[in-house]
Design a protein around this nucleic acid. Sequence first.
DNA 1: TAGCATATACGAGACCGATTAGTTTCGTTT
DNA 2: AAACGAAACTAATCGGTCTCGTATATGCTA
Lengths: 203, 203
Amino acid sequence: MTTSAPPRPGRVLDPAKRAAILEGARAVFMREGFAQGSMDAVAAEAGVGKQTIYRHFRSKEALVEALVEAMCAPEVVRPPTRSLPSGQRLRELLLTFVTGVASPDSVRLYRAIVAEADRMPGLGRLFWEAGPRQVRAAIAQLWAEEHDTATAPVVAEQLVQLALGDAYQELVLGTGSPKREVFERQIDAALALLEVASRRHRR
Amino acid sequence: MTTSAPPRPGRVLDPAKRAAILEGARAVFMREGFAQGSMDAVAAEAGVGKQTIYRHFRSKEALVEALVEAMCAPEVVRPPTRSLPSGQRLRELLLTFVTGVASPDSVRLYRAIVAEADRMPGLGRLFWEAGPRQVRAAIAQLWAEEHDTATAPVVAEQLVQLALGDAYQELVLGTGSPKREVFERQIDAALALLEVASRRHRR
DNA sequence: TAGCATATACGAGACCGATTAGTTTCGTTT
DNA sequence: AAACGAAACTAATCGGTCTCGTATATGCTA
């Protein structure tokens, strides 16, 4: 019964422009932060009129949300190939996760989200659901396959914390640039710790 | 040989005013963040003319640096009373540390420092040295007394990470307000984990 | 299938209102 | 003589809107 809205002729919003705007926003906001980065800067970086941004995004806040969503999306974790020896798969998963999270862009994204945590609480949840939560789920599943199902969720949490460790804090605080080997050491220590405890728990 | 500068009469900068300004800055910046908090707001909060702030601090940046330094300083950790049973002292230390770090003001300070990590890299180091580093040292010493000296530093790192855990991430990201019991559970699990491994390591 | 009309996207840039770091002024206090 | 409170003032930034001239896709008509 609802009459469909009359077809509205004219040009249509160009998806390529939207992509260019998001790319410009990524460059600007990861360089200067969400608060400091200006819409004029985004427009210039994207090679686009400012009004075009507002045709594609309602406001700066909407643009930021779309950007965070886009930057979190590819963080989906796929467990490593099943061909690896059982014990190595978990190590591999942790290593790829940590190297991803330790990349400059990922650190800047985390910083920017933390910075606006109380002004835009939605960002924090968006980030958590798209990134850290899925990582923990993947790790828990792998642990459940190879060890205990009951303790898998809490073990996954602990593994993530230990794998990131102080080295990640250095990155976030900008006080150092730990090498890959540091993370590898932390991961190996974490796995050793948890597996010892698991064996003991299983009597 | 250098002629002493001519005596300069007049009033002297009032230290009480400086303290009031820092207190006002703490209130404002912890409420609104370093970027959003305005100097006018600090002046009002401190009950002080804006120019008085600029007589005591060269710029907003200088005020922020002084504030961070002041807020980090008192975070010195004193190990708990020796009267406690040996096994409980470590738990007590971790608990007071975590509850301190989980306080709203501490979380906001951490957020603010992370937010400006690349614009003001000195803040990150200042914070790390004054807070987390000392906490780790205190924990390591306690662990060395009761267990192994060689592994104490890395164990302290792991204990801190596990004690904070995902609950602290929720606080930082603003996605939740975990109760004290959550942190207690994380601490107990961490201690159990590390002590099991320690006993095994000692053969 | 070709062509015309139309509504909209687009770039550029002026413009508005609000906010803010920092300065200046003035009368008062120490 | 300089600190202090109060408040006006300056210069700059920024989110968002508006206008203008141009480009382009869509729908209707032939």
